[in-house]
Amino acid sequence: MRDAGSLLVLDQVVKTFGGVAAVGGLTAHVRQGSVHGLIGPNGAGKTTVINLITGLFHPSAGSIRFNGAKLEAMAPQDIAATGISRTYQNVRLFSGMTALEQVMTGCYLRRGVSLWSSFLGLPAASSAWRSTREQALHLLDRVAMAHRADELAETLSYGEQRRIEIARALGSDPKLLLLDEPTAGMNHSEAEAVGRLVHELRDAGLTILMVEHNMSLVTAFCDSCTVMNFGRLLAEGDPKTCIADPAVQEAYFGRKNDADRIQALR
């Protein structure tokens, strides 16, 4: 029923750390071709969910299905090969690599040649390398970073590094892109640009699951959303309706008058 049309299905997923449940029986569906928001207050378990989907953690119980594959027992590199790619809440670019090299590394899965023929430098491998390089440059261009291609990524600003990380994640030509707070530390216009990119990608057929704290960006970017609190499902569906939900308001802002106080402080 709901599973039809869903690219990603989390079914009663549990993850405990030393007896404490970071995710406690979460069920969620991400529709093919949508931008799906994953929201919730700090410590709700959003990053843990992304780590579970990408195989960095394995669920203590429950199942994760993606495009017909059962992910819960698979290794991260095999999950990546099914077409899932991600960014990190705290940017995790490779030290010592230029922006272009980062994105090239992201293209590893679609390099199109064996490690062996690449080592031998066979003509086919060289031309595949050049065309991958072109693709990587194109991806950098999409995030407006092509002019910094040959600079060490660690010397660039935080916002620029975030954009390079998105380009790197797109390198594998994924079906599902997981973005963990992609706009954190960005100013308004940078965040808007990320939103536009996300919509372009969706219109090109990509499915996106993104963690986002800024509620106005959630309503602007997302087609649907899942709200978590204490590792559990709090609300799901249309972003505006979810955010208006009193339970969600309370989880985010405490009691209503606290929320008013927070609003007043801004």
């Binding site: 195989g55 991600r86 990190y88 995790r92 590893y108 899965l109 790197r168």
Partner: peptide, 11 residues
């Protein structure tokens, strides 16, 4: 540099 990140890129 980061084996976990590399693994999520299919390496």
């Amino acid at each position: 540099e980061d084996a976990a990140v590399a693994s999520t890129m299919g390496i």
